[in-house]
């Protein structure tokens, strides 16, 4: 039985001037899935992620969340959706440099107003400790390494316990060890029931997926389900995913 669809994308198109980036994309994102979007450079991966995560507005089409079209949301409703329902992780971290590690993580929590300040700070400390950042809690962002920054970004994205986590090349700016740590965190969150949608061109990151969408020339070129990630089966998984991706022209 497939999981329930959490996001439904219908006939989504995105044009910049006369240039078509995405054309009539139809997809469903299912609850608790770790969906990875792959494809060649310029295929429209990040654009698709931004459009379904409300970071950008499509030229045409609908993005349904709980039967409500996100493209029609007002500024207030959109910000409520972003605060409550989603988290986002970027290749370039996008942390607020002049805030400390703890402040960066707490900010979305304070903004949501669903918990007291003390509760938010407590949860932020827990998250940072679980991500091995307890010694950096009061440090300035500029003093952290790339891997540490990305873990702060993960903590920030999880502070409000969102249903959906979007990640755009989260390991792109990291070395192998830091990248693996980040992916482990994401996998753990997914195993705990969080829906993850990640854009990557990194095979290592793609191995974590239980579903891969291959996008080419602005269209969904391939969509395949895989078994949930299991480290013990990593080699078999690598062969399976690689061969499918090669079929797609990767």
């Amino acid at each position: 039985m497939p999981n329930n669809s959490i996001i439904t994308v219908q006939q989504l198109s995105k044009h910049y001037d006369n240039h078509k980036i995405l054309e009539n994309v139809d997809i469903d994102i299912f609850e608790s899935d770790f969906t990875v979007i792959m494809g060649p450079s310029g295929a429209g991966k990040s654009t698709l992620l931004q459009n379904i995560s409300t970071m950008d507005k499509p030229t045409n089409g609908k993005v349904l969340f709980n039967q409500q079209d996100l493209t029609q949301f007002t500024d207030k409703k959109l910000s409520q959706f972003r605060k409550k329902e989603i988290g986002f992780i970027f290749q370039s971290f996008n942390l607020i440099d002049h805030l400390s590690v703890l402040e960066n993580v707490c900010l979305p929590g304070f903004l949501l107003h669903s918990k007291s300040k003390q509760q938010v700070v407590k949860r932020a400390r827990q998250l940072l400790t679980s991500l091995r950042l307890s010694d950096q809690i009061d440090q300035a962002i500029t003093h952290l390494s790339g891997g540490q920054k990305q873990r702060v970004a993960i903590a920030r994205s999880l502070i409000n316990q969102p249903k959906l986590l979007f990640a755009d090349e989260p390991t792109g700016a990291l070395d192998s060890t830091a990248g693996t740590e980040v992916l482990d965190s994401l996998t753990l969150n997914n195993q705990n029931g969080q829906t993850i949608v990640m854009v990557t061109h990194d095979l290592k990151a793609a191995l974590r997926a239980d579903r891969i969408l291959f996008i080419k020339d602005g269209k969904i070129f391939g969509d395949r389900k895989f078994s949930p990630y299991d480290f013990d089966q990593i080699e078999t998984r690598r062969i399976e995913i690689t061969s499918w991706l090669e079929e797609m022209g990767w």
Partner: peptide, 22 residues
């Protein structure tokens, strides 16, 4: 990405400790 190394705020006003509105 051309980002400058931002100097962290030396303010003692902490987002997590201050009782003032966010």
């Amino acid at each position: 990405g051309g980002q400058s190394k931002s100097v962290p705020s030396r303010s003692h006003l902490s987002l997590t400790k201050s009782s003032m509105p966010l």
